[in-house]
Amino acid sequence: MSPFSPQLEARFRELMQRYPARRSALVPMLLYAQDELGWLTPAAVQRIAELLAETELAVREVIGYYSMLRTEPTGKYHVQVCTNISCLLRGGDELYAHCERRLGVGHKQTAADGVFSLEEVECIGACSWAPAVQVNYDFHQELTVEQLDKILDAYAARARGERTDS
């Protein structure tokens, strides 16, 4: 039984054909699996190992190397605050400290309600629009604490809305 949707299984089949050796598809497959499941579950690791004819251990070794790949769930909205040099000079530390206070969690922790998780990250390539924050894959740039608050309010509302809808 595959833990993935038929669409993702099809995408994997196409991906594996793009390279001289299908092992090359491993890192993208892991990231796309995580996108669908939220994290790399044991079933996901097992299935990807099977598709690539690799051992689960070999797959886990690769997972451990890449900072975006996770073997535990995060919040629905994963808030990543850059504090590297350009952001440091424009208030990245203040944004990060504010998130800690507001969300009540620290680095790589998830709030009890599962809506938000927090991570202090390295440069996200938004230096000339510092300070910058990424929430899941969305960039938010040139932020003040007040603007960040509005953005987090909007995500929180979306989480509430989606819950009452379903």
Partner: peptide, 11 residues
């Protein structure tokens, strides 16, 4: 891969 802190042009 553009990851060198301070660099955001390839983007």
């Amino acid at each position: 891969d553009e990851s060198e802190p301070g660099t955001c042009k390839d983007r």
